[in-house]
Design a protein around this nucleic acid. Structure first.
Lengths: 151, 151
DNA sequence: TATTGTTATACTCTATAACTATA
DNA sequence: TATAGTTATAGAGTATAACAATA
């Protein structure tokens, strides 16, 4: 993320089995992002452009996009510029605070998001192999391993 | 990935519950890579530099690194250049094929990998909350959802 | 002829710093 | 004073194309 992030706290000895679990997590994360990148490239989009579109289920200020993407606010300008030039998003003035610009998906942007979502699933055939019980179990374990921050 | 990758096959209708599972997978993958990037930045490394070091458990030709990282071979030159300039890897001539250069971790590089691994675990405290049974279950489900390619 | 690694090129992403216009 | 968005800048990642050395 930021290049000035202080080093994390020294690691404590980890529980047995952690190394193998980490390998599986690394593999799963790599597969997911590789599939996402391939799908985005299929529409002439970069990974980060596809991610931004996927975040725009509702209109969001530039600042909020920067936080959700985990990058500096100055980057959002260029990414939105390029998406706007392709007609996938548009900037709107926020009435409540005239400093704020809200980013909104265009109909073409919404269609791109639908295609991305569908193609991601199609690109990860292993997911379709899991039955309902396994899916619920996987969701539950992922949610405990990577809790959603409440704030 | 490559910008010329052909679009994926049209998506078939997905099973119910897939959308919510995809959200959890996206969140988990984002958390994992965010943690990885923070840990790498703590050592002055980029995400891709940290990933490359982590792949070098055994010496690998430049070409193999490109495939494992999912990027073009021409990029590997620069990434290895920067890691080599910092003394974390070194290039060795391959005796069997004089076209090939093999990339090897230096002792400093090995130490960097150890720190990365330990800090990643420390940066994902949710993982330590899982008991042995849950870890095995999560590993099994991830392995079925993202099978390791054989060959 | 094909393959490995490199170089040159152009574009995108990234953080930092400085700027403006609002609040 | 503080905040939202932009611009300028520099460095890193990325694909493409062309190249030298080797197979």
């Amino acid at each position: 993320m930021t290049r000035t992030t202080p080093p994390p706290a020294p690691a404590a000895p980890s529980a047995p089995g952690t190394d193998r679990l980490m390998e599986h997590l690394a593999h799963a994360a790599a597969c997911y992002y590789r599939s996402f990148a391939v799908v985005a490239a299929g529409q002439g989009l970069t990974l980060i452009q596809g991610k931004m579109l996927s975040l725009l289920g509702r209109p969001l200020p530039m600042r909020a996009l920067a936080e959700l993407l985990g990058c500096d606010a100055s980057n959002v300008t260029g990414i939105v510029d390029r998406l706007e030039a392709r007609g996938l998003v548009r900037r709107e003035a926020a009435p409540a605070d005239r400093r704020v610009k809200t980013v909104v998906l265009t109909p073409e942007g919404e269609e791109a998001v639908r295609r991305i979502r569908a193609d991601i699933v199609a690109g990860l055939p292993g997911l379709e192999q899991l039955d309902d019980h396994d899916r619920r179990t996987l969701r539950d374990l992922l949610d405990r391993a990577f809790p959603h921050t409440t704030g």
